[in-house]
């Protein structure tokens, strides 16, 4: 039950040689889809870590909150597109409040406290979602125009999955562009490289951190609502994603943006291929084994940029 992010049904028995190739290609496409969702989700995790040195254990709960908020907005008669925009805005605001009201209280505490605190927040948010009816699966239908299946020769992929990947890639590209070119991005990068240096440059860490947590929460929620038509929405849907995202940020190196980009697709591919050929649980174990092996040889991730503090 845990990680079956079954993007492509189950039991894709590959009989003939031709079918084997079709299956592999189809899995590769789905790996891209999962990788894109994972990337969108992990980016917030990486930013929050980079600026605040906080590993956000509540990130999965924010994903679930986004998915459920989107599903509820849509089921109350609004269109999919409104849900897609409103849910991230709503959860982004929640993130802002959480950082201002809760995380800000432990800024100068030992690292252990930030881990415990976000873990407590994860429990709290999950509890709130349960209370609001999140125990039940809620479906979110993709919009009319995206319900079909795109067929290319013998390959086929639901149109909505292509849309999700494109959306995720576009959002990530826009974010990276802003990080590179805006004043806000400059401050983020300065704080990411060295928090003390950032303080020297006269950066107001409080408001910067508020904006980063709000943005991270909104990205998690965007990933959640965009993925809801695939994974459905319920209070713990984000748990699975969080585990995969944790593996992503470790493979990419804690705090490394480009590391996260590459690692998200590596993890997506491993999970989808593992699921296709070996079953979901085995895929997760395979991924964990690879991560452990990687930590022995390259403990700081793909680009050697991971934090060691």
């Amino acid at each position: 039950m845990l990680i079956s992010l079954t993007l492509k049904g189950r039991a894709l028995g590959a009989e003939g040689p031709g079918e084997g190739i079709v299956l592999a290609l189809s899995l590769a496409l789905n790996g891209l889809v999962l990788g894109s969702i994972l990337l969108l989700f992990s980016l917030g995790l990486t930013l929050i870590y980079g600026v605040g040195r906080i590993v956000n254990f509540a990130h999965g709960a924010l994903f679930s909150a986004g998915a459920l908020a989107g599903a509820w907005i849509a089921s109350s008669g609004h269109s999919f597109w409104i849900a897609l925009v409103a849910a991230p805005l709503l959860i982004g605001a929640v993130g802002l409040v959480l950082d201002w009201a809760v995380l800000a209280r432990i800024r100068d505490r030992p690292m252990v406290d930030s881990l415990l605190l976000t873990f407590g927040l994860a429990l709290l948010i999950t509890g709130v979602l349960y209370q609001m009816g999140g125990r039940n699966l809620t479906m979110l239908q993709p919009p009319q125009g995206l319900r079909g299946t795109l067929t290319l020769g013998t390959l086929s992929l639901p149109t909505y999955r292509i849309f999700v990947s494109a959306l995720a890639v576009a959002a990530v590209a826009a974010l990276l562009f802003f990080l590179k070119n805006s004043n806000w991005g400059l401050r983020i990068r300065a704080a990411n490289d060295d928090p003390e240096m950032g303080a020297c440059l006269g950066i107001d860490r409080e408001s910067l951190m508020h904006s980063v947590v709000a943005l991270g929460a909104a990205l998690a929620a965007l990933a959640g609502v965009a993925a809801a038509p695939i994974f459905t929405a319920y209070a713990t849907v984000g748990d699975k994603i969080l585990i995969l995202a944790f593996m992503t940020v470790i493979l990419g190196g804690l705090g490394s943006l480009r590391g996260a980009v590459v690692a998200a697709y590596v993890v997506g591919m491993i999970i989808v291929f593992g699921e296709g050929y070996l079953g979901g649980q085995v895929a997760l174990m395979l991924l964990f084994g690879m991560m452990m092996a990687m930590l022995i040889r390259w403990p700081r991730g793909f680009f050697g940029e991971g934090r060691t503090e």
Binding site: F119, G120, L124, I125, G127
Partner: peptide
Amino acid sequence: WLIYFGGLFV
């Protein structure tokens, strides 16, 4: 329960 539990934790 989980709300109180998480809240107490925080």
